[in-house]
Structures are given as C-alpha cells and as structure tokens.
C-alpha cells in the first residue's frame, strides 16, 4: 500500500477530500461575508444563522411540504435571501448611518434570536437529511473512494463561487457594486439607486449562505447551532484572506479547508485550532490579510 509520510494514501486523500469539502463551505460563506462587507461595511454576524436557516428550510420543506432537494436548492436561497432583504430594508437600513459596530451587534443579536427560537421549537439535537437519490453512491478512484454527493458539493460550491466572481469582476452590474463599495454618494449622483443595490447585495450574500446550508443538509446534522460553530471558523478565514477580495475569500476558504484536513492526518489534536494559528501568523506578518489591500 502506498504511504505518504507514514499514512496510507487512501486515508491521506480521504482527509484531503474532507478538508476540501469543508473548504468549499468556508469559501461560500466567506464570499457572502465579503460581498456584504464590501457594500454595507457590516460584519454580518447573522451569516451563520442564515446558513443554518438554509439547511433547516431544506429539512422542514421536505418534512412538511414535500419539497425535494433539487427544488430546495433553488427555492431556499431565494426565500432566505428574501428574508435577508426584508431584514436589510426594515432593520439594518435604520442604523446604516451609525458606527458599523452597531451593525455587527445588531446582526449578532438577530443570529441569537433566530437560533434561540429554533432551539426552543426543535431542540439542539441534529436531524439527518437523506442524500438525494441521484447523488448516492460514489466513485472508486483506485487510490480512494469518492462519494458522489461530496464531489457534487465541491463542484456546485466552486461553480457558484466562480459565477459570483464573474458577475462582480466582469459585468456592468458588478462594476456598479465595486464602484458603490468605493463611493456610494457619487454613484447616487450618477443616478444609481444605491439603497436598492444595498438591499439586493445583502439579499444575495444571505442567499449564498442559504445555498451553502442546502448543500450542507445531507452532509452534516441539521441543528439550530450548526451555523454558529461554523461561523467562528469562517471569520478566521475572512481575517486570513483579507476583507473585500472576492477571489481571496474563495481561495483562502479552500486553502484553509485543506490545511485543516492535512492537520487531521498528521496531528488530529490540532485540527480544530490550526486555522486560528494561521490567523495569528497572518495577523502578525500581513495584518491586512493575504489578499487584502494594505490600508
């Protein structure tokens, strides 16, 4: 059997794959955070809750409304994204003129309310969601077994990240977004409805989180606390990558997933902390983050 530094190849590749999957979720979530932070300058602490709502809506949709996975994949981001727009329009906009710290506190409070409500109703134990029929089974690659659903998660997450990058960096709408991030007042003076752009951007960022939640439903236990535990790691990823860079958010997300996977192979005890170690290193050497612009 092939060994890599004393670890069987199949185990090594398996962990790497798991790391990459985690990385795909980090990428999707930090991407949404980066998009929201760019235009609203708000650190969206409700992001984990929106991810959790995505997974929960998928689960409840199937349980009570008979909505299948594929429909949920399309419908849930729209519904949860819509909820995000309502939140922006009714709540966040009222404090937009205040210090951005208030936005952070407000979204943190929202996350607690959403989480607490769901814990009250459903408890903290997780429920499982079945893997959709079309994505069951897997591929025997020789050196490892690759479950189809995990391959799908990777492909879907990367496709959405790439699509988002394309829209933001290469289209006219993306140019509005980038310009609005830099100088919203001037964009208004050009005739762009910036408040609407802000609402749609927040909705889109939230929809990305919800999309990640749908992808996660068959993979991880669906519980009200699934978002808050993930969000802390995602914030570390965002700090490492640097706020505001789309591609940076995606690459850092995947990279940190891989590093986590590798650590699991060689020193499992540190797997949960390695990202924070990297964060400390990056903060010491490059405070603006790997892809961030120096202020």
């Amino acid at each position: 059997m092939t060994m890599i530094f004393g670890v069987p190849l199949a185990v090594f590749m398996g962990q790497l794959m798991l790391g990459l999957i985690n990385g795909a979720f980090y990428a999707l979530l930090s991407l949404g955070l980066a998009v929201i932070f760019g235009l609203l300058k708000i650190v969206n602490f409700a992001h984990g809750a929106m991810y959790m709502l995505g997974a929960f809506a998928t689960l409840l949709g199937m349980r009570y409304l008979g909505i299948g996975y594929w429909v949920a994949l399309l419908l849930v981001p729209i519904v949860v994204g819509g909820l995000g727009m309502v939140i922006e329009r009714l709540i966040l906009r009222r404090i937009a003129h205040l210090d951005h710290l208030y936005g952070l506190l407000l979204t943190f409070g929202l996350a607690l309310i959403v989480e607490g409500t769901l814990i009250n109703v459903f408890g903290v134990s997780g429920s499982s969601y079945p893997t959709p029929a079309a994505l069951q089974g897997g591929f025997q690659l020789g050196f490892m077994f690759l479950p189809t659903y995990r391959a799908w998660v990777l492909v879907a997450a990367l496709a959405v990240c790439l699509g988002t990058w394309y829209v933001i960096e290469r289209t006219r709408l993306g140019a509005y977004l980038r310009a609005g991030t830099e100088n919203p007042a001037l964009m208004q003076a050009f005739g762009v409805n910036v408040p609407l752009l802000v609402t749609l951007t927040y909705g889109f960022g939230v929809a990305l989180a919800a999309f990640a939640g749908v992808l996660a439903a068959p993979l991880y236990p669906v519980s009200p606390t699934m978002g808050s535990s993930l969000l802390i790691v995602v914030f570390a990823v965002v700090v490492i990558g640097g706020m505001g860079s789309i591609l940076g958010a995606v690459l850092t997300g995947l990279g940190m997933g891989l590093i986590e996977g590798l650590t699991k192979v060689y020193y499992p005890e540190a797997a949960n902390t390695v990202i924070f170690l990297v964060m400390i290193l990056v903060l010491m050497l490059r405070p603006a983050g790997l892809f961030g612009k120096e202020a």
Binding site: R172, A175, Y176, R178, A179, T181, E182, N183, L186, A189, F190, G191, V192
Partner: peptide, 20 residues
C-alpha cells in the same frame, strides 16, 4: 466632483461606462 471620484477598482473604460 472636486476629488474627481475615479474608481480604483475599475479600469478606465469601466469608469467611462459606469454612469447610467
């Protein structure tokens, strides 16, 4: 505007095409 308001994240042609 007095400060010109050229967008750093856009290239020259994107800046030109930006205002609706």
């Amino acid at each position: 505007p007095e400060e010109r308001g050229i967008f750093a994240s856009l290239d020259v042609e994107e800046n030109l095409l930006l205002p609706p």
